[in-house]
C-alpha cells in the first residue's frame, strides 16, 4: 500500500459499482492494467470487464508502461499520477491517489460521484402478469 490521498464512497458496494468504476476509468485510461493487491492477478481493463474480477483490493495503472515503471522504481515523480489504489470493502469503496489535486485525483472524484449518482437509478420493476381471459356469467 502506498501513501497518498483517499477518496471514499460509503454504502455497500455492488458488482455493478465496480463495473461502473472500471468503465468510467476506461474512458480516461483505455489501456489500463489492473493488478490485484497480492500480485496474483494482472489483467487489462477489457479482460476484467469481460470476466468480472472478484478481487477486493487492487491497483489500476494508466498503462503497461506505468505498471513497469512502478514495478521497477516504485513511486517516482513521473509515475505518481499513473496509478490508483482501490479497496472495495463491505461498506465503502476507497480510491487512493498520490495527490488530491492531480489528474488522477480529479478522475477518482468524478468516478465516485458517478457511482453515487447511478446507485439509485435502477430499481426492480414489479412483474406484470400476463392477461388472462375466461368466460363468466353475470
Amino acid at each position: 500500500m502506498i501513501g497518498g490521498f483517499e477518496f471514499e464512497l460509503g454504502g455497500t458496494p455492488s458488482p455493478d459499482d465496480v463495473g461502473r468504476l472500471l468503465r468510467l476509468l476506461r474512458v480516461k485510461w483505455p489501456a489500463c492494467i489492473l493488478e490485484s493487491a497480492d500480485g496474483a492477478v494482472t489483467a487489462t481493463i477489457q479482460d476484467v470487464l469481460r470476466n468480472r474480477s472478484s478481487t477486493s483490493q487492487f491497483f489500476l495503472y494508466r498503462d503497461l508502461a506505468a505498471k513497469r515503471s512502478w514495478d521497477e522504481h516504485g513511486l517516482t515523480e513521473e509515475n505518481g499520477d499513473a496509478m490508483i489504489s482501490v479497496i472495495i470493502d463491505e461498506d465503502f469503496i476507497m480510491m487512493i491517489v498520490n495527490a488530491q489535486d492531480s489528474v488522477s485525483g480529479h478522475i477518482v472524484k468524478e468516478i465516485l460521484q458517478g457511482i453515487h449518482t447511478c446507485r439509485n437509478v435502477n430499481r426492480l420493476v414489479p412483474p406484470s402478469y400476463a392477461p388472462k381471459s375466461q368466460q363468466v356469467t353475470i
Binding site: G19, L24, V27, G114, V121
Partner: peptide, 15 residues
C-alpha cells in the same frame, strides 16, 4: 449506466 466524466457524458455498462 449514465454518468459524467470531465463534465462530458459517459453512457456505458448495462445493469
Amino acid at each position: 449506466g449514465i454518468m459524467k466524466l470531465g463534465n462530458k457524458p459517459v453512457i456505458d455498462g448495462y445493469y
